[in-house]
Amino acid sequence: MIGFEFFIDQSRCIGCQACVQACMECDTHRGRSMIHLEVIDRTVSTQTGPVVCMHCEDPVCASVCPADAIKQTEEGIVHSSMKSRCIGCSNCVLACPFGVPRYVASIDQMMKCDMCFDRTSVGKKPMCATVCPSQALYFGPRAEIERLRPEQPVNEFRFGRQIVKTKVNVMVRPETTVMDFDVVSFMSGASSGV
């Protein structure tokens, strides 16, 4: 879909896993979800974070692949490893700064999010962003999300001295506030005893 981009706002995520479940249902994924839902620390918070491939402009996973099995399309989509080339070495799994690729032993191949290439290439939105009930995963024009939301899209990340630019954007709040996640902090002193 021309002009449409992918935006992630982890702060909106409700941990429902609709993205995970829907990813399995994408025709070419055949029951395998390529999205990871990270539970940050359930003891502390219900905060979860959906992780899709960020589709780096200069993908590290592809650079480190000794078999040249990871290809990037003209549109900037970074694909799963090619079955005919992948040697299952997991270099990509270790190298990715976002922790996206997974080595799937049963098929001896690396699989990762391809931004529903089969759908986006025929004018549909990616499955996860279509179903996401909180729209933590959003697929649409940049101007539209900038108009709708107070958060700002960011697609440049610094890992030490390495700067990674990505096709996928992360929404960040313009102002950051301290957040507390312990119910006790919200309770009156009188009743906070057990």
Binding site: C16, A18, A22, E25, K125, T130, V131, C132, P133
Partner: peptide, 22 residues
């Protein structure tokens, strides 16, 4: 055999929870 989001429906615009998907 499966589902496809229904984006034109004005309430959920294709959004679904895991129960609806499965």
């Amino acid at each position: 055999i499966g589902f496809e989001p229904w984006e034109e429906f004005p309430v959920n615009h294709g959004m679904l929870c895991p129960k609806g998907i499965k």
